[in-house]
Amino acid sequence: MLKVENLSVSYGAIAAVKKVDIEVREGELVTLLGANGAGKTTTLLAIAGVLRNSGKILFRDREISHWSPEKVAHAGIAMVPETRDVFADLTVLENLRLGAFTRRKDTQGCEKDLAGMFELFPILEERRTQPAGTLSGGEQQQLVIARALMSRPQLLLLDEPSMGLAPAIVDKIFDYIARLKQTGLTILLVEQNARKALTCADRAYVLALGEVAASGSAREISESSDLAALYLGG
């Protein structure tokens, strides 16, 4: 479904990602692992159309390498950034409605999905009229995932969903991710918390210093002890 070939991204003179190849097949949950600064987020932002890049990004056999972020979104790729980026002074409900921007004409479908989101994330229904900026970190994370799902994406890009959250909340978030995978959604997940990510992923890539250091099925990666020692923080 998504094919990244030979992707390179630089910030000025610094090359953050060097010739990376990644593939995500329909219905898979693929995780990108690696230490801080390995180039995971940069890769994701390049796919989302935010960063200028060289290389080829194919989505359903169409080249999207130089598309604008809005065009990428319309093609069916939804991004959940690590900074979460809730619209702080919009209410929870408005955040969710904006998530459905790409299919705003389908009002009935939107309402139905909204009800679905409230079922999946009950806390959001409770907070629906609150400005999103007043939510806790865990609640905001649920909100941005729900907001991304409102567009009925074909591919979900998740960047560090567990960052800065209490362990109990992290478990809950990964619960949700596992449930989303069961619905057949294709997901590309970036995580520093490698153990958690590998428990629910099908396949994994390990990035180090902007390059793919290893790849394979989630089991292979988690069983390779030297990999764990080298890149995944023991």
């Binding site: 989302a48 159309g49 935010v50 604008s68 972020p69 809005e70 990428v72 979104a73 319309h74 939804a78 991004m79 950034p81 980026d85 619209f87 702080a88 002074d89 919009l90 408005e94 955040n95 904006l98 998530g99 921007f101 790409t102 907001r147 567009s151």
Partner: peptide, 16 residues
């Protein structure tokens, strides 16, 4: 309103 606070995020949601 969304674009006024997070322009890039708004674009990633498909807002041109």
């Amino acid at each position: 309103r969304a674009a006024a606070s997070q322009f890039r995020m708004a674009r990633m949601l498909g807002v041109p």
